[in-house]
Write a protein that binds this DNA or RNA. Structure first.
Lengths: 343, 343
DNA sequence: GACGTCGCTGAAAAGGTTTGCAGGCGTACT
DNA sequence: AGTACGCCTGCAAACCTTTTCAGCGACGTC
């Protein structure tokens, strides 16, 4: 009937089909394909040809059922819309080689019920481990219930110190930003940032304050300008800062979007950036930071690396029970044209 | 030893454990849990209590091995960085209820080799179907090899008309934009867009030209200004347009980023937006469109809906063989402050 | 030429769930 | 009270792969 020899109709080929076609037992076929045991070279070739011909792919379900390892990992995120999850997700994917481990992606949308559903489904699918990505850096409640597989929390740490958490050093990020501005000779530095309810905003502000204090300085207005994370707050706050403190010569912004707003207002007010006022953003969101005029210096949180580390830690924890740990990773500064030494 | 009764140590509970605890056979336990067969109410309760106590979750591997259905779907994307995949991905997740179907996410990064690896891994995991998301709207080569499960192509259609493809109506999007500008009384309309190598750019331009022709008009310069998709091209092109055709009273931009650049240049040149020149973008990328000054009217491609439809089509194709189809979905206009009736 | 050893192959079990089929017991009706 | 029917329960097979163990054949050596 069909051209191919013994190609099963509507069914994917099984090891039995391959063995039959190669004229060996399924045990020999398995060994030939996996390189296990001693199989004569000619036999192996025959089996591999048969497998190729039938486009045989070993059934990972059966394999997992037997070995107890599925080679799958669940990734639980809270905000796919947000731009934090994606780089982390890519880092995780990189950590496991392509095709070695497959990632189940679930978006809980910040809903605890939905999260529970997803966890249940993932455990039922016998994932080897879980990665939980938060949408903000505030500690989050650990997964409820007895989770029989390792869990790694990324970006948002678990509130339980017995868990494994990987986070960004936001305090250090704030310091980085200020130190760069100081190295540019700036002394009158303001800080415009997002909602004070966010740990990230407070941490960055604390880092900034600490770096300034180390240089014997205080930030303009003696406190950060907390507001929201978007451009309009950047525009509004920049107006306030310039009006109240015209001596300002640098503004550290809590997000690139805020920085965009700040840039726009400074431009409106006729203040030269970076000459008279340098501006630095946070997140290094390429679409926003790399296309402004002038292009924005920004703190990059290395989220992709964060995800890769999470993948590695999870991998280690799967292989052998690992001690709880809480790691914080520094960001790095990406210098563009919005900051420049005074002169 | 432990407080819980017979809770297995480092092993997840199996149906045998539940049955033993409830004092029934595994068959009865299975039927009680799945509501199959006739089981006495009291027995069922006893089994369910035992399952709850052991936090039993049926092994989806074993179930899938037997039934041939895994309740998993592979989602193959080419650009996670890009902002097209994510809304589509969310739509797909929505289409399958939470916990019903789990999604394997794979990013091929535009690499055919990597894509082949991922497909192989997914088929080996016995996914019930595949969704392929493109990064641009140009038709893409269909997946190579014999794929024994249904495949749905989203955003980028398959080059093979025998496949199932779900795409955006870019021509219609271009028309929408122009019709809105015409309804605002604009007559001297320019079109600044991305690379001519992109089908999306050409389609939107064609739609724009058609809508203008229907009104007896031609676009300013008699052709679109093709360039790149970013702000700097928007700035540069806007300079050219205004210089060469000062009579321009509206600009239709191929992306929100281009529109941002256009807005900035118009502002620099002292042209009032939306009064003297209206501007409309494309993509309705919230972070970009909703925070500019003025906020940007834009064409939204309804990507989330696109993903949801893809999920539904895949679901239907899994349940029963479906005829090939190629569907195109219209976008919608989101009106903000950058467009306004003349006068 | 015979025996031993090594190299190769195959039979069988395990992993957890679902389901068809058969059997057992209880109840109701005659 | 007996029989029949129906409700409920349990045994066993099947899904597909991996791995252990045993067996067979061939070759080499004595």
């Amino acid at each position: 009937m069909t051209t191919g020899p013994e190609v099963p109709a509507n069914r994917t080929a099984t090891l039995t089909d391959v063995a039959k076609l190669a004229g060996v037992s399924i045990a020999t076929a398995s060994k030939a394909i996996n390189g296990r045991g001693e199989v004569r070279a000619t036999t192996r070739v025959r089996v591999l040809e048969a497998a190729e011909l039938l486009s045989f792919a070993p059934n990972a379900l059966a394999r997992g059922l037997l070995s107890g390892r599925t080679g799958t990992v669940g990734l639980l995120t809270s905000d796919l819309e947000g731009r934090f999850s994606i780089p982390i997700l890519m880092g995780v994917e990189d950590a496991f080689g392509a095709g070695q481990v497959s990632v189940f992606l679930c978006d809980a949308r910040g809903d605890a019920i939905r999260e529970k559903h997803h966890v249940r489904a993932l455990l039922s699918r016998r994932v080897d481990g879980l990665i939980v990505v938060g949408s903000r850096t505030d500690p989050r409640p650990p997964l409820a219930g007895n989770i029989p597989v390792p869990v790694v929390y990324v970006y948002a740490p678990s509130a339980n110190p017995d868990d494994i958490s990987i986070t960004v050093d936001n305090v250090g990020g704030g310091q980085l930003a200020i130190e760069h501005l100081l190295s540019c000779g700036r002394r009158n530095i303001a800080h415009i940032t997002g909602e004070a309810g966010f740990q990230a905003a407070r941490d960055r502000a604390d880092g900034a304050a600490a770096a300034l204090a180390a240089a014997g300085l205080r930030m303009i207005g003696h406190r950060p300008y907390f507001g929201s994370w978007d451009e309009s707050w950047g525009r509004a706050a920049a107006h306030m800062v310039v009006e109240q403190h015209p001596e300002v010569d640098a503004i550290f912004c809590g997000s690139d979007q805020i920085a965009r707003g700040v840039l726009e207002t400074l431009r409106d007010l006729g203040r030269d950036v970076p000459g008279s006022t340098s501006v630095i953003g946070f997140d290094n969101w390429d679409a926003v930071a790399a296309h402004s005029r002038p292009r924005l210096t920004s703190i990059d949180m290395n989220l992709k690396r964060l995800g890769a580390v999470a993948g590695q830690r999870l991998f280690a924890a799967i292989d052998s029970a690992t001690a709880p740990s809480s790691e914080e990773f520094p960001g790095r500064i990406v210098i563009r044209e919005s900051t420049v030494p005074i002169g």
